[in-house]
Nucleic acid binder design. Sequence first.
DNA 1: CCAATGACCGTAA
DNA 2: GTTACGGCCATTG
Length: 114
Amino acid sequence: MMPITFEDVYRVVRLIPKGRVMSYSGVARLCGAPGSARYVGFALHALLHHNRDVPWWRVVNARGRISNIYAPLEQRKRLEAEGVHVSETLEVDMEQYDAEHIVAAHLRSYKSLR
DNA sequence: CCAATGACCGTAA
DNA sequence: GTTACGGCCATTG
């Protein structure tokens, strides 16, 4: 299987619609690297000191919890600003907000158009 | 080259 | 609800 790069991760994260979220494992799956969730976290971590056009705040862990240890409140603020409800325990409802199926469909149509 | 390191995850007890 | 552990894999020192 082809190794994935930071850019592969950023490409998928950029497809998450405003007002939606995805899990680290979901991003890894759509990058074609199922099981590489840790690496997705690593790629997002690399964004901290380089401002890029990547909506990192739309990525949470598989249970909907904010696992960013650097700026959890900033992440919550940005999500709320998009209409995503974040609980006091820093969790979102994945049943309601998970965009994996949407992004997957987007990638499928992109692939068939190409 | 090798070992350690993550903004993680699924399973098991 | 909790902790523990193995797997994960590109990057870094």
